[in-house]
Design a protein around this nucleic acid. Structure first.
Ligand SMILES: [Mn+2]
Ligand SMILES: [Mn+2]
Ligand SMILES: [Zn+2]
Ligand SMILES: [Zn+2]
Lengths: 141, 141
DNA sequence: GTAAGGTATGCAACAAGGTAACACATCGGA
DNA sequence: TCCGATGTGTTACCTTGTTGCATACCTTAC
């Protein structure tokens, strides 16, 4: 049988032997349900219906989820971070952000490989590939 | 004979038949002199010696330079834009930002080529490749 | 069950980057 | 020299994100 997103969220947290608080599972569920990486503001808006989570708590929960490996944190072109559930969004792909509506999308079709040279004594940690343009929703006609 | 960075800045603006104001040529000169993309704050600090330019004016001038094709605007991992003179920084390369000191560097050695597929009705405009790690200045020992 | 400690939350205040509104200055052409 | 367009300075504001601190909540030990 298949678990609800709610149960998936709760068990994902419980499996880490961490406290399954409302703020945590509700936030994680929001990311499971989302079909694209969401900003703090988008998540807050989405959660508002079932009772708002405090702004600061949400920032803290999001960072906690990232720290626990349950979520990814991706840069947006509008200077706001996006978050996605790790289940939905396995690392290694590029992201696309619409310059009209600012929505972000994962480009999972192709896994790009980068060939780059760093100057001496530079140490690599992470790389991001991000594209901009207009999304399907924002095309004229 | 070779022009001073000051003259280069002034003529670059004049060649566009635009007004060569102090704020403009001083800002552009600051970018010419810089050996890496600078944040608004870094530019402001650099200009302070020769008489401060108003914060808002500097934001406007930077966007103006970008709009005129004289500067590039690059995202930082610290939610602040970086600016570089187009003369110094021809497009098409990746950028590296140090997670310790937040300085940004251009990786001009290799010109990466991306192979990516967009979903239907998405329109591509621009792509960025950005790396993170620690720079030579920030290595232990 | 209760006490005690750690952990999570809420609230207020703050900081930084960036923008909007509007008045004033400056320029360049008629 | 006048006028309209463009550029600048000041203030006030917005958004994103953080810090400090008091309170609430669990969990475990007794
Ligand atoms: Mn993704
Ligand atoms: Mn560059
Ligand atoms: Zn769009
Ligand atoms: Zn560094």
């Amino acid at each position: 049988m298949t678990l609800s997103t709610r149960e998936r969220a709760k068990t994902a947290i419980a499996e880490l032997n961490e406290r399954v608080t409302d703020a945590r599972w509700r936030t994680l569920e929001a990311l499971f349900v989302a079909e694209r990486p969401l900003s703090h503001a988008e998540i807050e808006a989405g959660l508002a219906a079932g009772g708002a989570i405090d702004r600061v708590t949400l920032y803290r929960v999001l960072d906690w989820l990232v720290g626990r490996g349950l979520a990814h944190k991706i840069e947006g072109h509008d200077q706001a971070w996006r978050f996605s559930a790790v289940g939905n969004d396995t690392h290694g792909h590029a992201h696309f952000q619409c310059t009209q509506c600012n929505k972000m999308y994962c480009l999972t079709a192709i896994q790009p490989t980068l060939v780059l040279a760093l100057p001496p004594r530079f140490h690599f940690e992470e790389a991001d590939i991000s594209l901009r343009g207009t999304c399907a929703d924002c095309q004229p006609r």
